[in-house]
């Protein structure tokens, strides 16, 4: 069929075009000289300069990076613990239920996650006085909660693939369970750890809905600032900001993917 020689490339280009054309337009317009977002006025980097002179955006960006880093780290620790429990201790009752529940935040609508976390934080504040009020702490905790689900799923898969005899060999050579975990298990699953931390980091970085629910005064994350700015009218410096965020997330994604691939290569070697 000669037709198929053209049909598939055309379909693929349409699909990828649909996905990436908006992003491409955004990137192009971030270098627009004109103040009007929809009119091309020549190449310029002035919006990038302006962006880095806007304290509101810079503060929000700093805050977002801090929140993303700390929530991803908490998510990593909790997620690895959950994954280890689910994969290594097969005997306990309700294991299947727990495995399903760990993954639930992946499919839970963000509005519901955000609302329920808000209710929890308010209730906790009333009962034990912590976390007092809403702010950075609550956003970090909220992001760690759903980040943990992603970490647990990725690390579980890696642990399942892992050759268990490696751990047995370590134990056989005199390593106690903690030493086995630190010297053999962790290094073996390291690529999955890096990848899942990056995923949790980027998810936190671009979350708007959950952050809006659990943030308080003075703790506006970057997506929140962007969203509020856009509501007052689109300004070209947002395009520049978005381009930078795409760059960061894209690099993180590429690095994470590369880590995963490297680990599969090593395993098949």
């Amino acid at each position: 069929m000669r037709l198929s020689r053209y049909v598939f490339p055309v379909m693929a280009s349409l699909g990828f075009g649909f996905l990436y054309a908006p992003i491409l337009i955004l990137v192009i317009y971030s270098f627009n000289e004109s103040k009007l977002v929809t009119v091309w006025g020549g190449f310029s980097t002035r919006w990038y300069v302006e962006l880095f002179q806007d304290p509101q955006i810079l503060d929000a960006a700093k805050l977002s990076l801090q929140i993303a880093a700390s929530s991803a780290t908490i998510a990593l620790v909790l997620g690895v613990a959950a994954a280890m429990t689910l994969v290594r201790f097969r005997w306990f009752r309700g294991r299947t239920w727990l495995a399903g529940m760990v993954a639930a935040p992946l499919v839970m609508p963000e509005v519901i996650t955000g609302l329920s976390l808000l209710l929890l934080f308010v209730a906790l504040d009333n009962w034990i006085g912590w976390p007092s009020g809403r702010g950075v702490t609550t956003i970090v905790l909220a992001h760690a909660t759903f980040g943990m689900a992603f970490v647990a799923v990725i690390v579980q898969a890696r642990l399942r693939d892992m050759d268990r005899t490696l751990e047995e060999a370590a134990m056989d050579l005199g390593a106690r369970p903690t030493t086995v975990f630190l010297t053999v298990t962790l290094p073996t699953i390291a690529p999955a750890l890096v990848a899942s931390w990056l995923l949790a980091f980027t998810l936190s970085l671009d979350d708007l809905v959950i952050a809006s629910f659990v943030s308080g005064p003075g703790s506006s994350t970057l997506p929140m600032v962007v969203f509020s700015k856009v509501r007052l009218g689109i300004s070209p410096d947002i395009n520049a900001l978005a381009t930078l965020m795409i760059l960061i997330v894209g690099l993180g994604g590429v690095f994470g993917f590369w880590q995963m691939r490297r680990s599969t290569h090593r395993r098949s070697a």
Binding site: D163, L166, A169, A170, D172, A175, V184, P187, T188
Partner: peptide, 27 residues
């Protein structure tokens, strides 16, 4: 297992992939 005076050579060899030959033997 970690206190028994026996050592095992595994069918799959179970060499630690992230360690050099030296570190494997030294483990």
């Amino acid at each position: 297992a970690y206190e028994r005076p026996v050592n095992m050579m595994f069918q799959s060899y179970a060499l630690f992939p992230h360690m050099t030959v030296f570190d494997n033997v030294a483990y």
